[in-house]
Nucleic acid binder design. Sequence first.
DNA 1: GCGTTTTGTTCGGGCAGGCCGAACGAGTGT
DNA 2: ACACTCGTTCGGCCTGCCCGAACAAAACGC
Lengths: 256, 256
Amino acid sequence: MNTNGNDATGTIGATKTSFGIVEHIRDHDASGVSEIANDLGISKSTAHNHLKTLAELGYVVRQGDEYALGLKFLDLGDHARTRHALYHASIGEMDDLVEAVGERGQVMVEENGRGVYIYQVKSEQGLQTDSHIGTTVDLHTTSVGKSYLAFCDEERRREILDGELTRLTTKTIDDRDALEAELATIRERGYAFNDEERITGMRAVGAPILSDDETILGAISVSGPTTRMKGEWYHTEVPEMVTQAARVIGIRATYS
Amino acid sequence: MNTNGNDATGTIGATKTSFGIVEHIRDHDASGVSEIANDLGISKSTAHNHLKTLAELGYVVRQGDEYALGLKFLDLGDHARTRHALYHASIGEMDDLVEAVGERGQVMVEENGRGVYIYQVKSEQGLQTDSHIGTTVDLHTTSVGKSYLAFCDEERRREILDGELTRLTTKTIDDRDALEAELATIRERGYAFNDEERITGMRAVGAPILSDDETILGAISVSGPTTRMKGEWYHTEVPEMVTQAARVIGIRATYS
DNA sequence: GCGTTTTGTTCGGGCAGGCCGAACGAGTGT
DNA sequence: ACACTCGTTCGGCCTGCCCGAACAAAACGC
């Protein structure tokens, strides 16, 4: 009766429920035993045992009658992104870029067919964040993602894009052929625009990060509201700054 | 039938090994199946099943014949620290403090009796060394930790300090009474020094972050080499800047 | 080139241990 | 004081975790 998710053979059910609990806590900031048991469809005692184990390991912490995520995940997350050469290479350069442009900047890598932001620099005009560090996005809906798709292996691109292209706004490119055409122009000129394709009212300029003219490491972008991202500045000056920064970061990433 | 004397009853073994594997990968940057099985004392097939599960969940990623940490941990880690009001409150203010002082700054909270850095600002003189985000330290060996101990509940302090005081350098305060005396002076003047008590050649100035004169949220500090951290500037000017910043952060943390 | 020794992977069987349901105890609110 | 819900504990069934052995395949040594 209890088919724990997929019937993938040779897979550990207890681990799945443990991480299910962790994700439940993440999505609710803090959760209690009964709430978790109800939402995940497990018994209270099972939820209790998992939480006890996770607390003992230090991955969740009790506060009163609720459990919250422990900071051991912060350590794991830091190691996960430290692994990417792109992270170290982009730190200083991105700050300079954001200061020059005056809009928010972010660094993305691909994982499991989705884009993940591993670094973000907020600009002076403190627009509140909808995309934190670690957020995953559909590649075809962002300037970083399109930059990545335009410059990665053809077979890899096919793997990623074989599913449906989800549509987030009226301007999202959800047609496969139109996307390929867009990627071709991006590949030609070396950078990508995003004109309200993910969030209405937001534009962005992105560029890929290439290590030694072959392998792609990720992509960077700067993004801001349409009220400020416009005109000649948006169409030529910003792309110039972004591609220049991307070049520098690519060089720094190769030698380290 | 539980003749096992440990109070580890009602605890999930599979979860423990899964996280053991994750931590092994963290400590080795990337690991293979056999290596993990050997080091953790489990069979190859078990390690394989755990890795398969973790990969399916997206918490580890394959690269060739090895596994590395997935960026889903980055998301979890970000949520773990976003939970702390101190994180948001200190972001802008710490950058200003670091720029004014010219040395590296960090923000710490306590978890499970140890200090965890949740934010860090590097200074212009850039050598980044040993303490990343998420690093845990012994409270009695740092200026942030001593600031925390000086201003937290007495019973909490007793819980934390009941064990041995590990000695990291020749100047580490490893005597309980001496530490209590030090904490008293810190409590009186409102800030703490660290004179090579954790790392030889490094000094620091720390101050607690109090929300509404009662509860302590954590602590902040600036740290640098003894060659630069010295004289009247180190003993009076820096503490003034640090405590001032701590006050501002404490106020910002209460109203948010 | 052929052994040899790795690697990762798959396959059954056995028994520990994860999961559940029910009962307990501690709060909280009415 | 009652009723409700919380977290926790306790037995027991039986699943599914763990292991060891066997298999595929790539990386050595000579």
